[in-house]
Amino acid sequence: MRKFTRTLLAGAAAMLALGTVACSGGTSTQAGSPSATAAPSTSTATPFPQSARYMADAEKDGKKMAIGISVDGDSVTAYACNGTDDEAWFFGNQSAGSIDITSKFRDTLAASFTGSDVTGALTMNGVTYDFTAAPVSAPAGMYTAALDGARASWIIRPDGSVTGVQFNGGISGRDFEQAELQQLNAAQFQAQVRNKRKLQQADQTVKLSGNTLTSRINGSEVTGHLVTGTTRFG
């Protein structure tokens, strides 16, 4: 009888010890119990290469937009245009593989690097274009040139096709007084500032040599240069 009792007590102690180990292991805790802990989150951000260029063609409701992005270190320059009468330049920085930039005409570009492509959304003139931009190498890229107050900009694809817009002014310095701009809602800004720009298709005849482009602005020959992540202008 005593032997049986000792055996029963030993078995009970072993079962109690096993239960304690199981509860303290962390993996067998029931979900939703007070002691349950959520799995640690992991970041999905992928750093950009030190220097790279990306390009995409996007479409929404029959409207097409060409997009170019250049990254150099933390600096980012992007350009989007429809090849006829709309464009946007974006100047800013990337952080941990993410881009979130607003142009001076209130267009927005938000994107992230996937490790190979850049995916995101471009919003221009109230239309949002989802895009995936693939990496490109020279001579493909964005190019721009200026002459007598006009600026022509081009996106040159790897197959040599061209999409570009020329800006011919049409906005007074008064439109850019910050105190006034802050008082304008989205609709007022579109009508009084953004849509007062004079835009037309850029000359489609271009020649490339290295990182320079030769074309014309209003009939005069100009030399354009490759846009990098550090390119800046007003």
Rank of each mutant, 00 (worst) to 15 (best):
C81K: 02
R216F: 06
R194K: 09
T27R: 10
S70A: 15
L226T: 04
A10I: 15
L199H: 03
N168I: 06
M55C: 04
A78I: 07
F233P: 02
G32D: 03
A134Y: 13
N218L: 05
T29D: 06
A186W: 01
A134N: 00
A13S: 10
T84R: 10
S35D: 07
Q204P: 12
A140M: 11
L181W: 00
N211Y: 07
Y129G: 03
L8R: 08
I69H: 01
G170I: 14
V127R: 05
F167Q: 10
M55H: 00
P47S: 10
P135G: 01
P139I: 12
D117Y: 02
A146E: 15
Q192P: 03
G26S: 05
G170P: 15
L147A: 09
G25L: 11
L122T: 06
Q188S: 13
R232F: 01
K63N: 13
D175T: 13
N211W: 09
W154T: 06
A133D: 03
Q178Y: 09
A146F: 05
D159V: 10
V127Q: 01
R6I: 09
F91A: 05
G126C: 06
D61G: 09
Q182M: 10
I171E: 09
E177K: 15
T20A: 11
T214Q: 01
T84Q: 02
A202L: 08
T42R: 02
E221S: 10
V127D: 08
P47C: 02
L226Y: 13
D175H: 15
G234V: 06
A58V: 11
V118C: 00
T77V: 03
A150N: 08
D117N: 11
Q50I: 05
M55R: 00
L18F: 15
A88N: 10
A36Y: 15
R157C: 05
M55F: 08
C23W: 14
Q192N: 09
D86Y: 02
S28R: 06
T7R: 14
A110G: 11
G169Y: 01
T20W: 14
A45G: 14
W154R: 00
M142Y: 01
V206Q: 06
E221H: 11
G173F: 12
R197D: 11
G173C: 08
T163Q: 07
T228L: 12
Q190K: 15
A140R: 06
W154Q: 05
L9P: 08
K64R: 10
H225Q: 14
D130T: 15
T205Q: 07
L9Y: 13
I99H: 06
L226F: 10
S24F: 05
I156H: 04
G73A: 14
K198Q: 12
A38C: 12
T29V: 13
F189V: 05
R174A: 15
G170Y: 10
A145F: 12
T144P: 02
Q50W: 03
Q183G: 15
S75W: 00
T44G: 12
G97F: 04
K207H: 08
R232C: 02
A146I: 03
D107I: 05
A36V: 08
V222D: 00
Y79P: 13
F131H: 08
S215A: 09
F113I: 04
G25D: 11
A186E: 12
I171N: 04
N82A: 00
A152T: 11
L181P: 00
A78L: 03
P139M: 07
L184I: 04
A186H: 12
